[in-house]
């Protein structure tokens, strides 16, 4: 018995909607539709919510707020984009300040069509979100229960879409730290990643549990040095030694390398702490954007 399908608590955020979809969303709570009969509570507190309901297209001001709210929702969580604007930017998609639909910032699970979306459609979207929520919850529990059976394997080109999806989820916390979504990891496209797979010197490691990739890291060797990057661990499984193990595995993947080099942002305390704990030492810093300074760390093979 999961209880998940019977108690969806919702947080509703208006990204830059014309208020049409918002009014229809709130109409769902009125006696006519009464979503509370499905156990829905409109919480207003992201930390209590399961479903993140976003209306309107994403503009420069709402971008950070969306990411912040998404980040505060406890796992498992589902994002529902309500209305045409939230799905694609709608009639505002060409505007200079609009970056597109909600999925241009955070991963979206359910799209509700309409302009404005009708209450019936929104309720239908929420009910579909419940299915996704339950699926995610089951996945999470079964993954968490079999973490000790995690396999660390070489990733192949066919893994690229899954690794990219993981990368977008894992880097949400970094974007949160720097308040900047121009991080290269978030900008990378599938084609670029697939091209990386074609490069023969590039090595990808994946952490697989129950056939699902929950962690990944990559690196390439040049002369005597191996350049490692992107320790990706799904947010739900952090703090359980997966990142540490990924670094060990990828070091093993370059038997010829005499020196390993990584770089990370100057405010990513977690990464810095982990690398230092594994014997890496800082040797230079380099400004990347006004918000981010790269910190380079290196380690000599013992």
């Amino acid at each position: 018995m999961s209880g998940f399908t019977k108690s969806p608590w919702i947080i509703h955020y208006d990204a830059s909607s014309c208020n049409g979809c918002d009014i229809e969303t709130l109409a769902c709570l009125t006696p006519g539709f009464d979503v509370e009969r499905l156990g829905v509570i409109n919480t207003g507190n992201p930390k209590h919510a399961d479903i993140f309901l976003v209306t309107g297209a994403v503009n420069e001001q709402s971008k950070d707020v969306i990411r912040n709210i998404y980040h505060q929702l406890p796992e498992p969580k589902v994002v529902v984009a309500v209305g045409a604007c939230a799905a694609s930017g709608g009639i505002f998609s060409e505007c200079y300040n609009i970056s597109g639909g909600v999925d241009s910032v955070i991963p979206v699970d359910v799209y509700v069509p309409g302009c404005a979306a009708r209450p019936e459609a929104i309720i239908d979207g929420v009910v579909q979100a419940l299915g996704v929520l339950e699926k995610k919850q089951k996945e999470m529990t079964s993954l968490a229960n079999s973490l000790d059976q995690a396999l660390y394997l070489r990733a192949e080109k066919s893994d690229a879409p899954e690794i990219l999806a993981l990368q977008k989820i894992a880097y949400q916390s970094e974007a949160e730290i720097y308040g900047d979504d121009s991080l290269p990891a978030l900008q990378q496209t599938l084609e670029e990643l697939q091209k990386d797979f074609d490069r023969s010197e590039q090595v990808f490691i994946k952490t697989v549990v129950n056939g699902k990739i929950i962690g990944s890291m990559r690196g390439y060797a040049l002369n005597d040095s191996a350049y490692l990057s992107r320790v990706l661990v799904h947010p739900y499984f952090r703090g359980r030694g997966i990142g540490r193990r990924l670094v060990e595995e990828i070091e093993r993947a370059f038997p010829g390398a005499k020196r390993f080099e990584v770089k990370t942002g100057h405010r990513s305390e977690r990464n810095l702490f982990q690398f230092r704990a594994q014997g890496y030492q800082e040797f230079k810093t380099e400004p990347f954007t006004p918000a981010i300074t790269w910190v380079y760390l290196q380690k000599k093979r013992q």
Binding site: M1, S7, R37, G39, K47
Partner: peptide, 28 residues
């Protein structure tokens, strides 16, 4: 409360569903 607002309202066991769900959520 729901009936007083002429709504149907959640099932009587709703608080138990809520607590069961909360037990399985991530603790932030």
């Amino acid at each position: 409360s729901a009936r007083m607002q002429s709504r149907q309202g959640p099932p009587i066991f709703q608080p138990f569903y809520d607590v069961l769900k909360l037990m399985q959520k991530e603790n932030v």
